[in-house]
Measured scan of single mutants.
Amino acid sequence: CHSECLGNCSQPDDPTKCVACRNFYLDGRCVETCPPPYYHFQDWRCVNFSFCQDLHHKCKNSRRQGCHQYVIHNNKCIPECPSGYTMNSSNLLCTPCLGPCPKVCHLLEGEKTIDSVTSAQELRGCTVINGSLIINIRGGNNLAAELEANLGLIEEISGYLKIRRSYALVSLSFFRKLRLIRGETLEIGNYSFYALDNQNLRQLWDWSKHNLTITQGKLFFHYNPKLCLSEIHKMEEVSGTKGRQERNDIALKTNGDQASCENELLKFSYIRTSFDKILLRWEPYWPPDFRDLLGFMLFYKEAPYQNVTEFDGQDACGSNSWTVVDIDPPLRSNDPKSQNHPGWLMRGLKPWTQYAIFVKTLVTFSDERRTYGAKSDIIYVQTDATNPSVPLDPISVSNSSSQIILKWKPPSDPNGNITHYLVFWERQAEDSELFELDYCLKGLKLPSRTWSPPFESEDSQKHNQSEYEDSAGECCSCPKTDSQILKELEESSFRKTFEDYLHNVVFVPRKT
């Protein structure tokens, strides 16, 4: 048989008469490798580009789960590009990614509803959504962080984005990388972005840091009482949809009607710091009717980097990364020049730590249904340095008659930039024990000054392991946590139920 035959053949030295091919099969003959313009397919066939392209389009058009959109890589027609490569849609070739590779997620039936953290986790790592997304989240724990972890990498949506009755959302900033909504599939009414009845939605994105392009379709905003109209108009300008909307697409009466839409800028007039305090004062603000001013709200939190936005980490279910302080308005003076500047002394802060701070007014709604208010920009203030805590785990070892090696770990709280350490030492008198000992005694162990690591005695271990207080009263049991108490109650309830079950099964009433 021919060298490319495997198993047997019907005619000697003829690659077209093989029972099976050793390498690849091409047009009725066995070959060692697939010549151009053919590609290896499933490690035994040679196919042309049209064959591989037909497989790709067949799966793409069917949208069946589990099928493969075949691509070409290293002269092979394979189910998908290997790690580190992405497909070129024009020629199906796998090309190296520039940075992290995109991950295209194809949605069944063309859309997916995100109504819980669990459903959001199914899209973790996706960068391109081939379909439409509907966000409908009523509640949950730590929602802002969970949504950002699972949806934060999405850069492109081919269909539309719909935010509907998501009472738990305060902001859409968890879509931190969303840059493009194509609108290839539109919501009824030709809408590519749809926001309806979101009672706590206050911000779409921080438009000073976020760009969003909507290729096709219109915007729809109705019944978002805490979303200011200025935020919607800003989205029109940034996304390129200005002029597409009709009169009733953006409701003037049901958007922002319960919001404090600040239209003035508060400026800080005085800032002073110490290692654990920050004193702030800002310019006074009074609405047209000074009785509408209820006070100020001061927001602050630790910020290692200057990239904080107002609604980071917030949701309507209680999660809030900001510390909020309510401040009463100052006494009002008739003389504008003698107006008191409101302020606040922030206490209990960490030394040498940068804080993000902003302040906003708290006002009631005027009778004319106009909203007044003022808010400052987010500023960054760093507390002063102070003395560091003591170095940890000092170790001293003498390696000769004239040297001592000293080692330690950095302090747990540096409280500033540590530039150097101060080492103090003092000579001590020799131990009298060394002169009084009889060095001729056998088995004498000389006193040693070398360091030995501390260890816990058996008594201390027994005390720590004991669940009861000892007789001397030195140790006591740790208080039980809520989960331990709940577990004990469940076990007790189970024992009672099981005992009742045994009584009912074992003891049967005697027939009379």
Rank of each mutant, 00 (worst) to 15 (best):
F221T: 08
F290L: 06
E237T: 12
K162C: 11
Y380F: 12
Y223A: 04
D197T: 12
L108A: 13
K218V: 13
L204S: 05
I154L: 09
S400P: 04
D292P: 04
G139Y: 03
I181A: 00
W205V: 03
L178R: 00
E122W: 06
T371H: 10
E246K: 03
N340D: 14
E262S: 10
I188E: 14
L279D: 07
E237W: 13
S208N: 12
Q216P: 00
W207P: 03
N150W: 10
Y194K: 12
S208R: 09
G243S: 05
I181M: 03
N334W: 06
R247M: 10
L266C: 02
T254K: 11
S171R: 09
N334Y: 09
H341L: 07
L108W: 14
A168M: 02
T383C: 06
H222W: 10
P388Y: 03
E109K: 08
I214S: 04
K337S: 11
S389N: 11
N130T: 11
S338Y: 06
S158E: 05
P284I: 03
G217W: 01
K242E: 13
I129W: 05
P304N: 14
N190V: 12
S239R: 04
S398V: 04
I181V: 13
S208Q: 12
A303I: 13
Y372N: 08
N190K: 13
I379C: 13
S119E: 11
F193P: 01
L147Q: 02
C126S: 01
D289C: 12
M297S: 15
G140A: 15
I134A: 08
L227V: 06
I114A: 02
C126T: 01
P394M: 09
H106K: 04
R272V: 12
T361A: 11
T383W: 00
A316V: 10
L196F: 03
V359E: 00
K409W: 14
A259G: 07
S274I: 02
I154N: 01
I405A: 05
L298W: 01
M235R: 00
I378L: 13
D335P: 03
C261D: 02
Y355T: 00
V359H: 01
N136L: 11
L265K: 14
P330F: 12
K242W: 10
R124F: 03
L143Q: 14
E231Y: 01
W344M: 02
H106V: 13
L108N: 14
K242M: 12
F174I: 15
Y285F: 05
C317S: 10
I129M: 03
L362V: 04
K218C: 15
K226A: 09
T361V: 05
R179P: 00
K409P: 05
D115L: 03
G348K: 01
L362P: 02
N399F: 13
D292I: 07
T213W: 05
Y305F: 06
D377T: 12
L204R: 00
I181H: 00
D249T: 14
K267M: 09
V363E: 01
K277L: 10
D377W: 14
P329Y: 03
C317N: 13
K409M: 02
P410H: 08
T364N: 15
L219Q: 02
Q354P: 08
W322I: 02
N141Y: 14
V128R: 15
L172E: 00
I188W: 03
L406V: 14
Q199K: 15
G343K: 14
S400H: 12
C317I: 12
D276R: 01
L123Y: 10
L406S: 02
N190S: 10
F220S: 09
K360L: 03
R332P: 10
Y194R: 11
Y300T: 03
L178Q: 00
L212T: 07
N334S: 06
G110E: 15
D115S: 08
S119L: 12
E122D: 06
Q216F: 07
N399V: 07
N141E: 13
G159L: 00
C317P: 10
N211L: 11
P388T: 14
N340A: 07
G131A: 04
Y372Q: 05
I405H: 04
N387I: 13
A145W: 03
A145I: 08
L153A: 13
A144T: 03
C317K: 01
D326M: 07
I378K: 02
L362A: 05
Q199W: 14
E236N: 15
E187T: 07
N224R: 00
Q306K: 11
S166P: 01
E187N: 09
S274L: 09
G139C: 04
Q403Y: 15
H341P: 11
F275L: 11
S321D: 15
E122I: 03
A259W: 09
R202S: 13
N263P: 11
P225S: 07
N142T: 08
L169E: 02
D257V: 12
L151V: 15
L151P: 00
F290Y: 10
M297I: 04
P394E: 03
F193T: 02
L186S: 08
L279I: 04
K375L: 12
S398C: 07
L294G: 14
L252W: 12
L204D: 00
T273Y: 06
V104H: 11
L172V: 15
E109I: 03
T323P: 01
L133G: 00
P351G: 12
G313N: 14
R369N: 14
T113N: 06
G152I: 00
K253P: 11
Q314Y: 03
W205F: 12
V359L: 09
N340K: 06
G313T: 13
Q382N: 14
G159R: 02
E148W: 15
T353C: 07
A120M: 09
Y270T: 07
K177V: 08
V359P: 00
D326I: 11
G348T: 13
V238W: 04
T254M: 11
I157V: 14
I379N: 04
D292Q: 15
K218S: 01
K301A: 13
P304R: 15
I163Y: 00
W282S: 00
W282E: 00
S319A: 06
D384A: 14
N307F: 09
K177T: 13
E109L: 13
S208H: 04
G343P: 01
D206C: 08
N320H: 10
D292H: 15
D335V: 07
A145M: 12
N307I: 15
R281T: 09
G373M: 03
G217N: 03
I114Q: 00
I135P: 00
Q199Y: 08
G217T: 00
S402N: 15
L294C: 07
E156T: 08
C126W: 00
H106R: 05
E184V: 13
R281N: 12
S319F: 10
Y160F: 10
K267A: 09
E237F: 11
A149M: 10
Q216H: 11
L293S: 04
A251E: 09
S260A: 13
E146Q: 09
E310H: 15
